[in-house]
């Protein structure tokens, strides 16, 4: 079963992502803030990471930088709001694979997750 790490601090968004991805057969692990995500990345393995950009303690940008440096084979999809264009552009420059706008469209989430995992 493919494992997905969700790094997101809005509990409604987390619950929705978790619900949808579990229903599609993925194993889902959640980190509500950056430090917890860093710890999980040290201890466990993941096939895909979905991360918010504005997080407590360690920002999404710092996490992406860390992932791309330490775990370059794990693809990253950014969870963004539609008003974060500059930040999304910066994230792409750092090597993220895709982005999804919150609140996400269920079919778009499925497609983007499948497509990103298929590239592996």
């Amino acid at each position: 079963m493919q494992r997905i790490l969700i790094i997101e601090d809005n509990p409604m968004v987390v619950r929705s992502l978790e619900f949808k991805l579990k229903k599609e057969g993925y194993e889902v692990v959640v980190a509500e803030e950056g430090r917890q995500a860093m710890k999980l990345l040290l201890e466990e393995t993941f096939d895909l990471i979905l991360t918010d950009l504005m997080l407590p303690f360690v920002t999404g940008t710092q996490i992406i930088e860390h992932i791309k440096k330490t775990y370059p084979n794990i693809p990253v999809i950014v969870l963004s709001t539609s008003t974060q264009e500059d930040i999304i552009t910066d994230a792409f420059k750092m090597g993220v694979d895709d982005f999804i706008t919150k609140p996400f469209s269920p079919s778009e989430l499925s497609l983007r997750v499948k497509r990103t995992l298929a590239k592996q």
């Binding site: 968004v13 929705s16 709001t81 008003t83 919150k102 609140p103």
Partner: peptide
């Protein structure tokens, strides 16, 4: 910024618009 999607998920545009403005 953090709670804006929560209003959007309940399709409350006023809440979302205000969050957007504050964010």
């Amino acid at each position: 910024h953090n709670i804006k999607p929560s209003f959007e998920m309940l399709e409350n545009n006023l809440g979302s618009t205000i969050c957007d403005e504050l964010a």
